[in-house]
Structure formats: structure tokens, C-alpha cells
Amino acid sequence: MTAAPADLLIDRPATADGAALWRLAKDSKTLDLNSSYSYLLWCRDFAGTSAVARGADGTPVGFITGYVRPDRPDTLLVWQVAVDSAHRGHGIAAALLDGLTARLAESGVTRIETTITPGNTASERLFTSYAERHGAHLTREVLFPAELFPDGPHDSEVLYRIGPPAESHAH
């Protein structure tokens, strides 16, 4: 993994970051784009389980949105990950994921779930390498088959379950 730039700050998103997160998701060309309103709400209501990477000027250059599953308080569901195209390839997504999970480990989160469409190799690599770095078990299974999506063609969503990390086995 390439080290993230030294001037990068991993932070909690603020409501004012909602527009930037929406633009990053839109520009990613791979994420399902939610309404701009939803990104504003996410930055307000789920800031504690999300992270933003800020460049030297404080502008968001990447983000992870997530939430703790209500019926599994030890599990973070990662909703979306995006990094600005000009900043890709520098380990920002991995730094975001490591920083967010380290922060949430303090409140008992030891597992991650996310869904990835087949062929999204960047996300597949991000989460596979996270599991390897942390010595965590990784399983995959189809969570939502393509035919469940009512709004036209959509690939199946494969559920990745990761955890717990090796360091939490001692507890």
C-alpha cells in the first residue's frame, strides 16, 4: 500500500461537507448517486460512523460513509467510499478505512460489512487488503441479487464480511 500524503487529515464530516461528498460520489462514475439531500443528512446524522479525507486546504478529497448496524452493534456497514480522481493511487481510501475503524474500535466495533458489485476491482482490492492488513477473516456472498432491484439493470451486490481483526481476538 502506498502511504497516504502526509498533509492529509482524516476527520469526521461536517454538514457543510455534504455538497463535496455528493460531488465526489457523482464524479466517481462507479457509485450509485444518492440525492444531495441524503449526503447532507448523512454528514449530520452519521458523522460519527463516517470519515472524510481533507487536503492541505481543508477540502474533502475522499470519504467513507457508514453506519453501525442496529441489530449488530459490533458491525460497521460501509455504505460508500470515494476518492477524487486526482488523488487516487495514494492510499487515501485505505487510510480512511483504517482511521475510521480504529476510531470505532473504541466503541466496540470489530467487524465490517460492505457490498461490492462484481468487477469493481478497486473496492474489491481495498477491502481484501484491509482484511489482510488486519489479519481478519473475510467471507463473500450475494446479498442482493440483480433481480431485486426495481429500477432497471443493476448488478448483484456481493456482501463482504470482515472481522474481527487479529488484535481483537485476545479480548
Score class of each variant (00 low, 15 high):
M1H: 00
A4S: 07
L8Y: 02
L8D: 01
L8Q: 08
L9I: 14
L9H: 13
A16H: 01
A25L: 12
K29Q: 12
K29V: 11
T30C: 12
D32P: 13
D32M: 08
L33G: 04
S35R: 02
S35D: 06
S35T: 09
S38F: 06
S38V: 00
Y39L: 02
Y39N: 01
L40C: 09
L41V: 04
L41Q: 04
W42A: 04
C43N: 03
R44S: 09
D45C: 13
D45W: 09
F46R: 11
A47P: 06
A47Y: 07
A47F: 06
A47W: 03
S50D: 06
V52E: 06
G55L: 12
G55F: 13
A56H: 14
D57E: 11
D57R: 10
T59Q: 09
T59K: 08
P60E: 05
T65Y: 03
T65Q: 00
Y67A: 03
Y67P: 01
D71N: 11
D71F: 09
R72Q: 14
R72D: 12
R72H: 11
D74A: 14
D74W: 02
L76H: 02
L76E: 04
L76R: 08
V78Q: 03
V81S: 01
V81R: 03
V83N: 05
D84R: 12
S85Q: 11
A86W: 15
A86H: 15
I92Q: 03
A94M: 07
A95V: 08
L96G: 12
G99I: 14
L100Y: 12
A102E: 12
S107E: 13
S107V: 10
G108C: 10
G108V: 08
V109D: 03
R111K: 12
R111M: 12
E113W: 14
T114N: 08
N120M: 04
N120I: 03
A122G: 15
S123E: 01
S123G: 01
L126F: 09
L126R: 08
Y130A: 15
G135L: 07
T139C: 15
L143M: 15
L143R: 06
F144R: 02
F144T: 14
A146E: 12
F149W: 10
P150Q: 15
G152F: 05
H154S: 10
E157I: 07
L159V: 13
Y160C: 06
R161E: 02
I162R: 00
P164A: 09
A166V: 08
A170M: 10
A170W: 10
